[in-house]
Write a protein that binds this DNA or RNA. Structure first.
Lengths: 250, 250
DNA sequence: GTTCTGCCGACTGTCGACAATCGTCAGGTC
DNA sequence: GACCTGACGATTGTCGACAGTCGGCAGAAC
């Protein structure tokens, strides 16, 4: 359920200000405060709730109700919902509103297959990019892997899955193609939604770290085929783990 | 410029009806008429205008003006524009409205690189799918290629580019992964927008048919490496043709 | 008992209006 | 002349209200 924790910071229309007053002396300390539209903030809030599995699949999200809970008009709510529909986190039925998307096993296979497409290509491009690109990528990935190790010790499922996905997002980002980033972020969100709403056993921490470590090693060594196979295996394994089944043609 | 050719079919809010009255006898002849929201129709109209290069890059698209031209309120126009912003066909500046997206050479390389990611993966999956999948794919692709030949004889640039892209869309669709389809359709639209607003010389008809023919042959034969290389070469060539430059790392 | 019809409540799709924001430009100050 | 300041016009972001559409249910017809 949606909680009314979020509040519109200033009444009335238009922008918002999180005014950060500073001492008169050091003006350089001015922090640029968040300038986001109401709809963007609602969208992010809802997106996070979906991603973290706090909303059940199929749960209807009525514009009126959300608008009341958040004390805003329906217009920005509507806009936010539309964004999430385009990201396939919500499904929309004509004249009957939107509801939280449900993912079937076949959806999960599609998502992981599409992720494989993008990650593999990104990995190839990073290797094409030469030693410099490879080094930057491996550094960034190792940093994420370190944070994954910490999260594993803490045992917070959502944090673990979030950082796991961040690892893959970092890999894609290292290819330096914003179109790939955009496409991947949609798949990443769907993946997290799937993981976090299924309360299945996570792979052991060592497995997770090892699998990602293999990717980094192959990348660092510039072994293209090893890397591509590792990515494919890693994703296939994760998908079969989630669906509890073997890969299907569709 | 936007023209006021489009008209809202029924005044007032809600749905539309293209009422198709039928003879009382054969009720099975009932055609389900188009049920699209106003915003969807506006979105498609604008999308087509952008794709066909009828709107200059950078041209501002004020909500008020479009709403007046189309004789609707700003709400559905706003919704339509937002959809196109998410598809990266328009760019939005906070409090200053949206304008037609401009594509730099680096954008074009990104687009073609991302297309390469998806097409290559789709091609691989089609081959993985076995002879049946391959046969269906090659049949569909040959049909599109035939239509490309006809369009080439007619010499309509926009039709040629549209069918060219349809060939690639068909290839991706043959992999049977709707996520890939969605991602590709965005890239496809951007590609067409780039092609149709640049008035550069098209490759000769024979070149175009031959290049696509090579893809079909490799696919039909199940020669994975040949196919992947052909896709990569085809796209790289097209991108360098569009940008008039060599591939850059970014 | 089954099938159809018409009503009901809830919600969306659309509308017109208002307020905040932005870029521009004239006017004042040093 | 260069710089800052304030007002102006245009446009977006947001709001409240209304009409259309949908699923469900009671009641009539057979």
């Amino acid at each position: 359920m949606l909680e009314a924790t979020w509040r519109r910071p200033t009444s009335g229309a238009g922008g918002d200000r999180g005014e950060s007053i500073v001492a008169v002396s050091g003006l350089s300390g001015l922090k640029t405060f968040e300038r986001k539209s109401t709809s963007d903030r609602i969208s992010e809030e809802l997106r996070q709730m979906i991603i973290e599995g706090r909303l059940r699949p199929g749960e209807p999200l009525a514009e009126t109700r959300i608008a009341e809970l958040l004390d805003v008009s329906r217009a920005p709510v509507r806009e936010a919902l539309q964004q999430l529909v385009q990201q396939k986190l919500l499904v929309s039925a004509r004249n009957r509103g939107v509801s939280v998307a449900a993912f079937t096993a076949s959806d999960i296979w599609e998502i992981y297959d599409a992720r494989c497409a993008i990650e593999s290509h990104a990995a190839g491009r990073i290797i094409d990019g030469g030693p410099g690109t490879r080094a930057r990528a491996t550094d960034a990935l190792r940093a994420v892997l370190d944070r994954l190790r910490i999260a594993l010790k803490q045992g917070d499922r959502r944090k673990i899955s979030a950082i796991d996905l961040e690892f893959h997002t970092t890999l894609v980002a290292s290819a330096g193609n914003s179109r790939l980033d955009d496409a991947y972020s949609i798949l990443s969100a769907q993946t997290l939604a799937c993981i976090n709403r299924l309360e299945i056993a996570l792979p052991s921490g060592e497995e997770l770290v090892d699998e990602h470590g293999v990717l980094i090693d192959a990348l660092a060594a510039g072994e293209r085929e090893t890397l591509l196979k590792a990515i494919n295996d890693h994703l296939t394994l994760a998908a079969s783990h989630l669906t509890g089944s073997q890969p299907s043609s569709n």
